[in-house]
């Protein structure tokens, strides 16, 4: 009798503890864990900088193929190098959250640690949110560290004069752009646990977004049907607004800027809702089929 009572108490306490796993505690624990991992692989930070430098060298030299070309868009005229650099910087910074998050989930699956994450009382959904939030913060931080020296090496924006209002609008557009990738990463994480190909999924999404964003050329190069499709990609609007703020002194009162901010925020919310409702179904499916840890 005493034993049964004791057992009930243990089960009750266990259940209580499971319910009491606070989101903030787990969130901070994941941040601490990830910082420790990054600190263990300090060399990868230097390698990351070198890789970024190489990528931007590629776009710099590609832009030099059309050095004399002046690109006119939304009432401003800018040289091809600045035009390409502005587009590529925004796409690179914002897509980093997606690629890093999905790479992280793929690594967990490959190493076999994903199964443990799935069964943690903290919950896989909260883990996804915390992990992607970390990658978002770290991605922005490391991008700033990387891009300052790169912009000294390739002074693409040396002739750009920008007002305080435009800087504010530019930062707001960038933030919204990063936010949309946060939500997109959550949906992609759902697909990753279903089809287990996170790295490839992120590569394909980033490839298509880069193509449609017009980061490398104005959208007028596309045929009409592709121009229409490109308008449905929120990043296309973001790149356009970003460039307007940088080269045309666009502010938040400009229709392109505020429309893009509203579209980005509403798309981010829409993607989050899709994630929220699809998560449970996908999670139950992998549990039923027993493919939680399969890679």
């Amino acid at each position: 009798m005493i034993f049964h009572e004791y057992l009930r108490t243990v089960v009750r306490e266990f259940k209580q503890r499971e319910q009491n796993t606070k989101f903030l505690e787990g969130f901070l624990a994941i941040f601490r864990r990830n910082f420790r991992i990054i600190w263990q692989y300090k060399f990868s930070i230097i390698m990351g900088f070198v890789t970024n430098l190489i990528i931007f060298s590629l776009f710099f030299y590609v832009a030099l193929l059309v050095p004399e070309m002046q690109i006119s868009q939304d009432n401003y005229i800018v040289d091809s190098v600045s035009f390409i650099f502005a587009g590529v910087i925004l796409v690179e910074i914002s897509t980093r959250t997606l690629s890093r998050s999905l790479n992280s989930f793929t690594s967990e699956m490959k190493q076999g640690t994903f199964e443990t994450l799935v069964t943690l009382p903290f919950g896989l959904k909260r883990y996804f949110i915390s992990e992607i939030a970390f990658e978002m913060f770290y991605g922005v931080f490391i991008s700033i560290i990387y891009f300052i020296p790169i912009l000294f090496i390739y002074p693409a924006f040396k002739s750009v004069s920008i007002s305080i209002e435009s800087i504010f609008a530019l930062l707001l557009v960038s933030f919204c752009c990063i936010l949309i990738f946060f939500s997109l990463s959550l949906i992609a994480a759902n697909f990753t646990i279903l089809v287990k190909r996170g790295r490839e999924i992120s590569m394909v999404i980033i490839g298509i977004i880069s193509l449609l964003s017009g980061s490398l050329f104005p959208l007028s190069m596309f045929p009409k049907w592709l121009q229409i499709i490109a308008q449905f990609s929120p990043i296309t609007l973001a790149v356009r607004a970003f460039r307007l703020c940088m080269f045309g002194n666009g502010t938040i009162t400009d229709s392109i800027v505020w429309i893009s901010i509203i579209v980005l925020i509403s798309s981010a919310v829409f993607f989050y809702i899709i994630f929220h409702f699809s998560y449970k179904r996908i999670y139950n499916r992998i549990r039923q089929t027993g493919t939680t840890h399969e890679f």
Partner: peptide, 9 residues
């Protein structure tokens, strides 16, 4: 992507 870039000039 580079097909459309080539159309730039």
């Amino acid at each position: 992507m580079y097909f459309f870039f080539g159309k730039l000039n």
